[in-house]
Design a protein around this nucleic acid. Structure first.
Length: 267
DNA sequence: ACGGATGTTATTAA
DNA sequence: ATTAATAACATCCG
């Protein structure tokens, strides 16, 4: 789940729930997710303080803290969620996998839920000390079409799916949304970038922004649905192309991930 | 029971 | 030097 749109909605959610509240508790039920930092150091840095800023960079969520330059940084890995909930709420369902939590003075807590334990938590002053942040490519939402064309030029020898997935090339796009973007742009995931036409690049740029923007819009108030034309509604389900119910979607390993696409519509 | 899963990284191969 | 494929990480789900 946690690709750019998901982390963006975590940002909105935590800004609405967790900003400017006195932190009174920090718990780390699973130390393995803490990177180069102990639970007691995080406690020392957070307790008695407040979150004053929450930002996103790629798939990272970054919390600025009052009275210290240190920032709390979450990466969710393959699975993740955040629940702001009364502290007495039972840890059942997904909440069983709370591997880190912040308690506030109002008796609510922010639970960092990470089913598979591949997520990571950092507490440091300089986000760029995390190699992936230091080397991360530009944010899709801040790219102009001209910059996008330049970026593709730099990566012209790669296949398009690998480019979209590479955080060092462009930030925040993961497997599901890269498939969706390519489906909507009608581009086969294995196409070489240098062989894309100018109009294909234009459409790709437009669809990249549309898909990500729409996914951010659909996410937060839980339950809203993606449009009928979306590949997302069919992958892991009936595997039928939403453009023509007769075409069967294909699943193939590309750039190390299982790509789902319509061999008929995507060329 | 086995394979696969929305991510990243180190290693190996091409 | 680049780029792509692979395994590994941890754990749940169908």
């Amino acid at each position: 789940m946690p690709e750019l749109p998901d982390v963006e909605s975590f940002k909105i959610y935590t800004r609405e729930t967790s900003l400017r509240k006195q932190i009174v508790k920090v718990a780390c039920p699973d130390k393995r997710v803490l990177k180069k930092i102990s639970c007691s150091k995080i406690k020392k840095g957070l307790i008695g303080r407040q979150f004053i800023r929450i930002n996103r960079r790629g798939k990272f969520l970054i919390f600025g803290v009052s009275g210290t330059p240190q920032k709390l940084i979450f990466h969710f890995g393959m699975t993740g969620d955040l629940h702001y909930i009364p502290q007495e709420a039972p840890r059942e369902g997904l909440d069983r996998f709370t591997r880190f939590l912040i308690g506030f003075q109002n008796s609510h807590e922010l639970r960092w839920i990470n089913v598979r334990g591949l997520g990571k938590i950092y507490f440091l002053s300089e986000p760029k000390d995390i190699p992936l942040i230091r080397e991360m490519g530009p944010e899709p939402f801040s790219l102009s079409k001209q910059e996008f064309r330049k970026l593709l030029k730099v990566h012209q020898n790669r296949i398009i799916k690998a480019f979209l997935l590479d955080q060092r090339a462009i930030a925040g796009i993961g497997n599901v949304y890269s498939d969706e973007i390519l489906f909507q742009a009608k581009i086969h995931p294995k196409r070489k970038i240098k062989e894309l036409s100018s109009s294909e690049i234009s459409l790709l740029f437009q669809k990249m922004k549309e898909v990500l923007r729409e996914a951010v819009r659909v996410r937060p108030p839980l339950g809203m649905l993606f449009g009928a034309g979306w590949l997302l509604n069919h992958r892991d389900k009936d595997m039928r192309c939403s453009r023509n119910g007769k075409h069967l979607l294909k699943k193939e390993t590309i750039a190390g991930r299982s790509a789902v696409f319509c061999p008929h519509c995507q060329r």
